[in-house]
Design a protein around this nucleic acid. Structure first.
Length: 579
RNA sequence: CGGGGUGUGGCUCAGCCUGGUUAGAGCGUCACGUUCGGGACGUGAAAGUCGGAGGUUCGAAUCCUCUCACCCCGACCA
């Protein structure tokens, strides 16, 4: 490609909208162009990168027996009504009507469409297991798109679906897929990614893992053990807190005028927050009260709580509801309450701590020396479950090592779905015994566009992205300085033609720009190998050569044998990524 | 959906508070000339319904009302 003809203008300054590194560089480098919030045109440079990523994914999915197909973007409501998601999914699902008034939608994920395809084509256990996948546009009407390509409304996703006769077989294949994902992200060039246990939703209970590219701008919060034996999303992470037992002291009612919050109570009584007990009240989807107790220095993890109470629509309770069971907002505790009509969830931090300050269920009063074991009467009605948020530095549940808080961009996610879709949609096979049974499903996703942005977050310097060879839009970037001079032009054109003949992907900067602009543009385009040709280099029959990540360093190479040398560099770089 | 912010040539912004000739600058683009190894310089040129609608006024980019879009924080994210 000749840069003089390539569409995609480089900008000296980033658009004001751009906040993250990847958004700034992708905008400045002319990789993509915003059309609307979270909707982008991929310009040639950006599109070449996504195509390379897609090809890597394709190769690895094919290698584990995947069959590529293509499902529609526009789907009918009918399929989603069969699974129940037409009703259960909110405004992220873009719905519309066709000219006949029929309910339609844009696909945001394709479990239903895939089940539709498989149930029409597979009927015997002899055809299982199998995996199909597609690389296709998804649309999710996100409430808040952000960070350029990291969270968009329209995006390209690889989604795969596997079908099995048994849970054991699903689990076997799940491991294979997990390994394939690891290979994919290595080949794409991620320097730092991990897979973690994830929340699979309250009805799941099935396994789910997320692949996270570590990056400060990542939306997910992860806890990772320095020993590498524990890593989990904040939503599911657990800490193994240690407790120092104390002899229970006699309970004591103390006046705490106007002290309602944990901070105020702790301050007023001169104790630390870890010696207080916090009461938090939720309203479940039936409008009933859920009374949660946790130690004062900890926060409730609502994802964990939702799972414990099997209700994903928890909201904070209003004062009226709280008072209806005899608790006093701001001064509430389990002490002396009749909670036979409500659900009570207590975090182990309260059970294992002694002599806490707790509410007295009386305006302006708290209790000192509250001890769960001694002071809660109706313990069989209490659900004791870990519902605490992990904090940076909390001890790992595996070996007590301090967990580190990291941020990550979710680039892949794999689920064991079981029969969640196959059962309601009657995706059955006939088993050896001639009986119809629902297929056991897994699903596996990779965000392609998001991966482009995540790579930039991990691979860049002050001047622009540094594309890994495997996904670089071009492999070699030739810059001709003083292009108007015949010798330079001829040398550039010859090298350009020879490289293309040799199958090298090459971009030729034939604009005759001054060195400064040419180099700055080259940095923004991030092509891994750079060759500069000028009258000065040609005087000795040489070119200047550098890797994008060499900074300002470079070396001189003879024109003689240059094509072979560059081919060797490419081969080596690819080999490292594939290792 | 709550809170905050911003809309002025392709990009970054000034002007608005305190209304007053043909709305400015830098970058980018085009032409010519001098330059030429990390974003050169000169001269000239093209390019703007000042997000939109309504209002106040002799007069609105500027003041008022409504509205739309975009960004950030939060909620949500199967």
């Amino acid at each position: 490609m000749r840069l003089s003809q390539m569409i995609g203008q480089r900008l000296r300054e980033a658009p004001r909208d751009a906040q993250t590194i990847s958004h700034k560089f992708l905008a400045r480098g002319g990789y993509c162009l915003p059309v609307s919030a979270g909707i982008f045109t991929l310009l040639p440079l950006g599109y070449r990168i996504t195509q390379k990523i897609e090809q890597i994914i394709r190769e690895e999915m094919d290698a584990i027996g995947g069959q590529e197909l293509l499902m529609p973007v526009a789907l009918t409501a009918e399929l989603w009504q069969q699974s129940g998601r037409w009703e259960s999914v909110g405004a992220e699902l873009l719905r519309f009507k066709d000219r006949n008034g029929k309910d339609m939608m844009l696909g945001m994920t394709h479990e239903e469409a895939c089940v539709h395809a498989v149930r029409a084509n597979v009927s015997s256990y002899k055809q299982l297991p199998l995996m199909v996948y597609q690389i296709q546009t998804k649309y999710r009407d996100e409430a808040r798109p952000r960070a350029g390509l990291i969270r968009t409304r329209e995006f390209t996703m690889k989604d795969a679906y596997s079908f099995h006769t048994t849970q054991e077989d699903l689990e076997r294949y799940y491991v294979i897929c997990h390994q394939a994902y690891t290979r994919i992200f290595k080949r794409i060039g991620f320097k730092n990614f991990i897979s973690i246990q994830a929340d699979s939703g309250i009805f799941g209970g099935n396994r789910s893992d997320e692949f996270m590219a570590i990056a400060d701008c990542g939306e997910d919060t992860l806890f990772v053990s320095p020993n590498g034996n524990y890593q989990a999303n904040r939503e599911v992470a657990c800490a193994n807190l240690t407790y120092t037992p104390e002899e229970p002291a006699p309970i004591e009612k103390v006046a705490t005028p106007h002290a309602k919050t944990i901070a105020e109570v702790a301050e007023f009584l001169g104790v630390d927050a870890a010696h207080t007990c916090k009461a938090v009240f939720y309203k479940d989807s039936q409008g009933k009260l859920v009374f949660v107790n946790i130690r004062g220095d900890l926060e409730v993890n609502e994802t964990k709580l939702a799972k414990v109470v099997k209700d994903s629509n928890l909201a904070f309770a209003d004062d009226e509801l709280i008072r209806s069971v005899g608790a006093v907002p701001g001064f509430a505790s389990l002490y002396g309450l009749d909670f036979s009509q409500i659900r009570v969830v207590v975090d182990p931090s309260v059970v294992h701590s002694n002599n806490l300050v707790a509410g007295a269920n009386e305006e302006q009063f708290h209790l000192k020396n509250f001890n769960y074991d001694r002071d809660v009467a109706d313990k069989e009605r209490v659900i004791v479950a870990d519902i605490a948020c992990v904090r940076d530095g909390d001890p790992s549940p595996v070996d007590g090592a301090p967990l580190k808080l990291l941020h990550g961009i979710e680039i892949g996610n794999i689920f064991q779905l079981g029969t969640k879709y196959s059962k309601p949609m009657e995706c059955n096979y006939l088993d050896m015994d001639g009986k119809a049974k629902p297929m056991i499903m897994g699903c596996y996703g990779i965000g392609v566009g998001r991966s482009v942005a995540a790579i930039v977050e991990q691979c860049h310097d002050d001047y622009g992205p540094i594309w890994p060879m495997s996904i670089a839009p071009y492999q070699v970037h030739i810059i001709g300085l003083k292009y108007s001079e015949e010798a330079v032009k001829n040398a550039c054109e010859t090298l350009y033609a020879d490289l293309r003949k040799a199958g090298v992907e090459v971009l030729l900067d034939d604009r005759g720009e001054k060195a400064g602009s040419a180099f700055a543009d080259a940095d923004l385009m991030g092509i891994p190998l750079r060759v500069v040709i000028s009258p000065k280099t040609l005087a000795t029959g040489e070119v200047e050569f550098k890797h994008r990540d060499w900074g300002k360093n470079s070396q001189m190479l003879p024109l003689q044998g240059l094509v072979e040398k560059l081919q060797e560099e490419i081969r080596q770089a690819l080999a490292e990524l594939n290792a």
